[in-house]
Design a protein around this nucleic acid. Structure first.
Lengths: 411, 411
DNA sequence: AAAACTTTTTTAATTATTAAAGAAGTTGTT
DNA sequence: AACAACTTCTTTAATAATTAAAAAAGTTTT
């Protein structure tokens, strides 16, 4: 089979992963090949048991199309979602199911030279524990905070190797499976684009409400990364004149007025100061636990918790107003950990838009809460692998040599 | 000739317009067709006298390529650049030369129901006066302020027809030549992308320093317009807490702290208040004249004028910091009328970036002053026509499924 | 219930692409 | 300086893909 045919074949598998079941006509359109060629490729895939016919679709006025689906149990993905403190590792099948328990490990990234080694060991461990044979793994997708260069496979903030060598190549060399990395917020956006609220929108802003406020931009139907891959630095746009020092060294960043970290801090302060609230029993040492507790309090109508979220929401809204002016998106999606607080975000954000946005611009922009919630990054990491799947055959790792070959992934 | 062949043929003409002279190999690559097909199309274009061979290019280590150029005197463009007060109309050839004097007319757009009729008459007049036969005009490109829907051909702010009917179709119906419209700042960006400083950059932010502060976004090598075509509303992002009322009805917009209009107003106030300066003889009734006078004063080292531009520049820089954070561009281009003030902008903008931008993000972003200056919009309007040249006959429809009929015009 | 229309699939005809060969230059070596 | 070795562009022949036509399987209309 020629290299070109392989590309088309992989494109079919990729489309079937994202769409679950498609007809030959649909696939022909999506992979931009003629019907006869697509049919021939499908025939081959059926023979090799990678694809199965799964009945007929309902007729739309003519002959019913044969529907194709990915064969189960032949391909698996490893998805890894990291934040500054905790890392989750999961194994997923082609139908987007978790096939092993999600492994959650405490792995602080700042000032931790051992982090990369630990990560590799844990990934290896989860893969081994799954009992799935190595050749069935398509690849590993990893989402991580920091300035990530997707093409080079480098994170300039965490998990660095000497001379900024590619960590994707490094990890792939160890576990013998292709590896892809991306910024955490970008992967949340990718998840929303492929499986979530942005599915029908070619222009969407996905806000990743987490310890910081991340942003993934969906422009013209695809994830936008910018010149060096750093686009979406929403957290640090200079929007306030509050003089508050930010972690980045500047003042007035969006992050200084809104983030889950800030909410937890403020909640702890409030409790210490004797504020009446359901939150009075906050642990005060575990960020994740406290955050979950506050979100739970919001849902139970706790006034203090609601006040904190409303203020944070209003400030996110001020940032969203900027996004709407600059990029005229169809939809704003609130995703990531914080989105599990639900509809509480709507009112304050809408209020900020009323005050700071030109009506003509935001009247046709909707604000929605993600249904993927806390698991968005894991879905996104899996999607990242399949996003690159068509190029994977170009990756070759020598089984006996430690010297990695030139790897060309995407563009 | 089939429809598909026509598309490729037109693509060749388009590429030759933007690149002036190209080899068959270059064209084959650019129009995404094989060498034999491209060669055959070129043969046909030579026969029909639309293209000429213009000698050989220097060898790059092998056989010298034959170079093709557009035939002169067979195709012309009408380009129209409007602002709120003044409209310029020009006729250009395929080599980007003005072939008739630029017609400048005073045509206020706000609250002027007659504006559209006047515009059509003047375009007609300029075309007639040129003595060029009608069938040689490829199309009319018009840049205008306001919320412009490029696809529908509607401006929601000015020049409206009843029921928001398409003004492009309306004008085209009258003058019998295809018409295209776009937002003024988008066309300035297009000009920079095709003929100016953004030529080598697939990610550029083009700031249109005019009576307001416009923005055209070049993302992934093409002009980005957003969901409804309104992207780039830079002027009204809420960046200040100054309480100053903006023309849009809100307060704190970027426009309230920087624009040529503001500079002229401040200069007039300063002069009235007796500020010592070369500007003391400002007319005070003609915005354009006064603006030119102040820019002249800047170049002659007038302290007051420089102070005004420095402050305005710093505030533009604050906005640019937001752009860099969100979109990680390779280059920021200062264009439009105000760019003729030259290097004066550099220092205050760089200062604002130092203060408000994460170093990692702006260290590799350059800020440049346009060389197209005041004529950028006219070049952009001409480019707009050729940008659409190939698409006029080409509409792609899903050949199999009724539901997914997609009209794809440009991407 | 049959004719007329849709849509998918198969096949045959057409067209474009890739690979191979040739032409025109440049570069490097003896 | 001469000639082999390498580039790059152009032409041609072989191969592969696309489009058009025909057939198959439904749905809708009369």
């Amino acid at each position: 089979m020629t290299e070109k045919k392989k590309l088309s074949r992989n494109k079919i598998l990729k489309e079937l992963y994202f769409q679950d079941s498609l007809s030959c006509a649909d696939l022909s359109f999506k992979i931009d090949k003629s019907f006869p060629v697509t049919a021939k490729l499908l025939e081959d895939l059926l023979e090799h048991n990678l694809v199965v016919e799964s009945g007929y679709a309902v007729s739309t006025g003519g002959r019913r199309p044969l529907i194709y689906t990915l064969q189960q149990d032949v391909m698996y993905l490893v998805s890894v979602a990291m934040d500054q403190y905790v890392t989750k590792i999961a194994i997923m099948d082609m139908q987007n199911n978790f096939v092993s328990p999600i492994e959650k490990i405490v792995l602080p990234l700042p000032d931790n030279p051992a982090a990369l080694q630990v990560l590799i060991e844990k990934i290896q461990m989860v893969m081994d524990a799954s009992g799935i044979s190595k050749e069935k793994f398509v690849g590993v997708g990893i989402g991580m905070p920091g300035f990530v260069d997707v093409k080079k496979g480098v994170n300039y903030t965490f998990l660095q190797l000497p001379d900024n060598k590619s960590i994707t190549r490094y990890i792939a060399g160890k576990i013998k499976v292709p590896v892809f990395i991306d910024n955490d917020s970008s992967l949340v956006a990718l998840a929303e684009l492929r499986f979530g609220a942005a599915r029908e929108s070619s222009n969407a802003m996905v806000i990743n409400i987490a310890w910081g406020i991340g942003l993934g931009l969906i422009l013209n139907g695809e994830l936008f990364r910018g010149h060096e891959g750093f686009a979406g630095e929403f957290s640090h746009i200079p929007l306030f004149l509050n003089g508050k020092l930010c972690s980045c060294g500047k003042t007035g960043c969006l992050e200084t007025e809104t983030s889950l970290q800030l909410i937890v801090e403020k909640a702890r302060e409030g409790v210490k100061a004797g504020r009446t609230s359901r939150l009075s029993s906050l642990k005060g040492d575990d960020l994740e636990q406290d955050c979950d507790a506050i979100i739970e309090a919001v849902k139970n109508g706790d006034q203090f918790a609601i006040e904190l979220f409303s203020k944070a929401g209003y400030n996110i809204g001020k940032g969203v107003a900027v996004l709407i002016h600059l990029l005229n998106p169809k939809i704003i999606i609130l995703s990531g950990r914080g989105s599990s607080a639900g509809q509480i975000w709507q009112a304050p954000i809408q209020q900020a838009l009323n005050e700071h946005c030109i009506y003509r611009l935001y009247e046709s922009t909707s604000v929605e809460i993600s249904t993927l919630g806390n698991q968005a990054e894991l879905f996104g990491a899996a999607a990242l692998v399949m996003e690159n799947y068509e190029h994977i055959p170009a990756i070759k790792i020598h089984p006996f040599s430690k010297h990695e070959e030139q790897v060309k992934v995407g563009e």
